[in-house]
Each structure stands twice: as structure tokens, then as C-alpha cells.
């Protein structure tokens, strides 16, 4: 990606535009080069990763996202924490934790917490599977795949399932003195979920994905 300065100068047609790539963080303009599988092209100015094709990336992303969805379902409905005090055991699921604020003054907070730890993570995974699964099987992209993928991208900072896991750990310590505390099945599902998500983000090279999506779309 060294010859960008000359190549990018006199382009105006739509076809030529798709041969260019703009660094999302610093606006530097490059001509798309072919990067070998496993390689990574970075922006020379800010170091942002521009292209990082991986073998079977599409299939892996879809499988990891599907795995996350299954784990998420388990995490939602099984209790993730249980405490025993005075002979009474109380179990709490993620759903309970999200809805707990609704009994008190702060309904908006309940909605926000539910959105951050349940709605947005699930929506994001569904959007990724929907947009990419057909392509991972060699088919065309489904209708509105681009919108789905864009929404998944925009939701990313607001999906906070992994932060919730750390929150559980902190809460455990806080009440350890009050009662006997144990971790439920859902906690381990959530912890696995976090690992899977980290793996997924490593595979998900945004700009490469978008180029593939564009090429495989029926225009």
C-alpha cells in the first residue's frame, strides 16, 4: 500500500471508488491491495487495522456468533448466582437482575440495564448470523444484510455482557459476608460467552468483511 498517493489522485467514477479504502480513524486514503490470508494491512499513519483476511473467516464468525447465541440463552434463564442465608436459598437469573430496578423508582434504569446486558447483545448476534450465514455457505447475501451488519457494528459499544460478568464477581465479594454465596450454571455460560466474543472480534476484520459483503451482494 505504498502507491496510494499517485493512484488515488484522479479517480471519480464509482468503480474506481470501490478500489479505494479510507482509514476509519484518520481519513488516510489508500488503494486496496491484495493482502494474503493471515496477513494484516495497517494504516501507515495511525496504525488502525485496515485489512486482515483470514481463511474461512466468514464461516468462523457465523459459528462463533451462533455459539454465543446458545450460551446467551443459557445465561439468561439459568440462575447465575445463588445465596443462602438463614436456611433460605435465593437464586437470581440475568433476567431478574435486569428487571429488578423496575420495582423501584428507576424504571428507565431497568430498561437501560436490560438493553445493555440482554437486548443489544442478542440483537447484535442475530444480525451478524443473519447477514453472514448465507454467505458462509457460498450463497448471495440476504436482503438488507448491509443494514443488519451496520447495526451490529453500531451496537457494539453498547452490548455489555462481558462487563456484567465482572459485575457478578464484584457483587459476589460484596455479599460474601452477609450470606453463603455460590455461582450458578449461567455464570459459567456467561464467562464462556465473553471468551467466544473476544475470539470473534479477532476474526472480524471490519473492512475486509464489508468488501466481501459488497462483492457478494446482488446489486
Amino acid at each position: 500500500m505504498t502507491d496510494r498517493q499517485n493512484e488515488a489522485g484522479g479517480t471519480d467514477g464509482a468503480g474506481a471508488l470501490s478500489e479505494l479504502i479510507v482509514c476509519p480513524s484518520c481519513d488516510a486514503l489508500y488503494k486496496v491491495a491484495s493482502v494474503p490470508n493471515g496477513g494484516r494491512a495497517r494504516c501507515a499513519r495511525c496504525g488502525h487495522s485496515l485489512m486482515a483476511p483470514r481463511e474461512n473467516a466468514m464461516a468462523r464468525i457465523v459459528m462463533l456468533a451462533a455459539t454465543s447465541l446458545v450460551l446467551m440463552t443459557a445465561a439468561l434463564f439459568f440462575p447465575f448466582i445463588e445465596i443462602t442465608a438463614g436456611g433460605i436459598t435465593r437464586r437470581t437469573s440475568v433476567l431478574d437482575a435486569a428487571l429488578t430496578f423496575s420495582q423501584s423508582l428507576s424504571l428507565p434504569l431497568a430498561l437501560a440495564v436490560a438493553a445493555f446486558i440482554i437486548v443489544l447483545p442478542v440483537l447484535r448476534l442475530v444480525a451478524i448470523v443473519y447477514a453472514l450465514a448465507p454467505m458462509s455457505l457460498g450463497w448471495y447475501a440476504p436482503p438488507h444484510a448491509r443494514t443488519a451488519l451496520r447495526l451490529a457494528e453500531e451496537m457494539k459499544p453498547w452490548a455489555m455482557a462481558e462487563i456484567f460478568v465482572i459485575g457478578v464477581a464484584v457483587a459476589l465479594v460484596k455479599i460474601a459476608g452477609l450470606a453463603h454465596v455460590g455461582l450458578g450454571a449461567a455464570f459459567w455460560a456467561l464467562a464462556l460467552l465473553v471468551l467466544v466474543n473476544i475470539l470473534n472480534d479477532n476474526f472480524m476484520c471490519r473492512l475486509t468483511l464489508w468488501r466481501t459483503l459488497e462483492q457478494r451482494s446482488r446489486s
Partner: peptide, 23 residues
């Protein structure tokens, strides 16, 4: 930035866990 949300989640978990039934 998003990691600051930990404390809010801790409150949500504690409130859900420690209710009624307990002292």
C-alpha cells in the same frame, strides 16, 4: 469508557439477590 458500567450492574445484581426473605 463502557467498563465504568460495572458499578451499575453490581447494584442491579445486589438488589435482585438481597430482597425480602432475608434479614
Amino acid at each position: 469508557g463502557r467498563w465504568s458500567m460495572i458499578d451499575v450492574f453490581v447494584v442491579a445484581i445486589l438488589v435482585a439477590l438481597v430482597q425480602f426473605n432475608l434479614a
